[in-house]
Amino acid sequence: MGKRFKLHIDRNAEFELDLAPLLAVMVKLVPVLLVSSAFVQMMIIETELPQVVQDAVKKQEADPNAASISVAVTKSDGVKITLTEKGQAHVEVVGLGQDKQIDYPTLHAKFVALKKSHPAIFKIDIQPDGDVAYKDVVRVMDEARKAREKDLRFPVKDEKSGKETTTDYMFPEIVFGNTMDG
């Protein structure tokens, strides 16, 4: 009968992991990624909406008597929001702050209040003056598009199922109303 082989395990033994191949891969990969990386991340503003919101926008467009919101942006007076409902216009003005810039927190609060009172409206008509800078137009669109508070959601009816759901979009459909004025 042969002697049983017993594996000898040294509990205190240490071994060194060879990291050289891993480092070689990384040295090659890092320059490749450095060259192809885009450090300035660019996005686009467009109206790609959830289906429920898209349906609500279509419904608003189909109804000629539906309430509408027009936003005029001027360099001297700030933002004038006009809500037209049942033939009557309600105007609200958000003026300039001390730094001669539009008071954006107040503007956002006005849009939120408007959305709360008129949840069926998703489309607004923006009409900036010719001398308004592009960055100010983009900022006004930002303030109108989505609610900034995470918990703030607005009711929207799913036209297909008839169920009530919620969305954080306020006025995602923004149309430049004075483009074709000439």
């Binding site: 900036p128 003056d129 010719g130 001398d131 308004v132 800078a133 592009y134 960055k135 137009v137 983009v138 430049f176 004075n178 483009t179 074709m180 000439g182």
Partner: peptide, 15 residues
């Protein structure tokens, strides 16, 4: 578009 371009110039491009 550059952020400081006035809307009047952009409107011509959109048009």
């Amino acid at each position: 578009a550059d952020e400081n371009i006035p809307y009047a110039t952009l409107r011509k491009i959109m048009y």
